[in-house]
Design a protein around this nucleic acid. Structure first.
Lengths: 190, 190
DNA sequence: AAAGTCTATTGATCTACATCAATCACTTAG
DNA sequence: CTAAGTGATTGATGTAGATCAATAGACTTT
């Protein structure tokens, strides 16, 4: 049950058996039904989530339209950073696109964990650093590429997402409307 | 000379005298002339930069137009995250908007530093976490607010920037053209 | 099979903002 | 004092993508 978790973490920083023995009980196993709301806008997000299988999304509303910020598939770890790290009310909702199995860890437990050894502290640092690098990259895409270029990049780098997520969610993730994405696809196909 | 640095760091994680004695020699003091190029697109960014006084910006080119990603004033620490953490060629340039005094630390020294104690490891983690939270917030602004709303938010949250940075750079930071910003200002004033 | 619900497509129109071009105000150098 | 930058403003026009509305295919539910 912990295999995927261990493999993912060990790829970042190898941990001692002692650190693992300390870490594993701090994770709580949870299952989310398809469509289940995990975090509601306005609540503070207290947990980091490691997706074992399934798919979660984080999104907010622009007016009455959903705007998807990110989609997390298996073996990815995330939280609502602004809320989790700064303890502010979340600007986003999190829900399950698919039935999902996950481990979650409370911020307080994570702080204890990351204070236990330099290896664990480094693990925590690497997660934040990696997340930071990817968010900056996404930021750059949104400001310097148009919809078509963003679509082609996603198609190239994460083709598997298209097998699992409906097109209107892809459009939302790309920052455009379903109509605009449909026209981009038509233009490319034609 | 180290006062601002110490005060900023201590606000995040208080360090022991021993840790400070270890840390300080790893910083290198540098001065940048106004307009000086610090990092060129395509190079790997090896240093984190702590701004003592002055102003630096990170930007790239969309076609032949500069697009400013961020501006860093005194007592802020940053690096080109994608390049620094993933050791990839930078997508951005960094240069000095004003004459600037700074400390820089090489990634290799930072890794040594953050592996020395749990306190120092936590300091490194907090920097990444805080940067992550702010980048996510900026990301959200760029996708869910229009130019006018972004301008008003900046005016409210960082009014001092307007005293120091020309309007066309503000426009670029906001993701709009100088012409568009000028019209927004006119509309608000009128 | 019929009815209802989603998702994707297509067309018509609208809008925020970009682009191009000219002018104006300020500063700095000769 | 004058010329030459440099930054900000204003006007005219262009465009990517939003919005609104209709249609059609695919899936469920009964």
């Amino acid at each position: 049950m912990y295999d995927a978790l261990k493999a993912t973490f060990d790829r970042i920083v190898p941990l001692s058996d002692s650190d693992w023995a300390f870490a594993l009980p701090l994770f709580k196993y949870v299952e989310y039904k398809k469509g289940e709301l995990i975090l509601r806008e306005g609540e503070v997000h207290h947990h980091s989530i490691f997706v074992i299988t399934g798919a979660l999304r984080i999104y907010n509303f622009n007016g009455n339209k959903e705007s998807i910020r990110n989609i997390f598939l298996e073996n990815s770890m995330f939280n609502e950073s602004g809320s989790y790290y700064l303890k502010k009310p979340s600007l986003f909702n999190i829900d399950a696109i698919e039935a999902t199995k996950a481990f979650i860890m409370h911020r307080n437990d994570a702080e204890v964990l990351f204070s236990r050894s330099v290896q664990l502290a480094t693990l925590g640092r690497r997660f934040a650093e990696y997340a930071l690098a990817t968010v900056v990259e996404r930021n750059n895409e949104l400001t310097s590429m148009d919809g078509k270029a963003r679509y082609l990049k996603l198609l190239k780098e994460k083709p598997h997402v298209f097998q699992r997520v409906p097109q209107y969610m892809i459009a939302s993730y790309l920052g455009i409307t379903p109509e605009a994405l449909s026209r981009i696809r038509k233009e490319i196909a034609g």
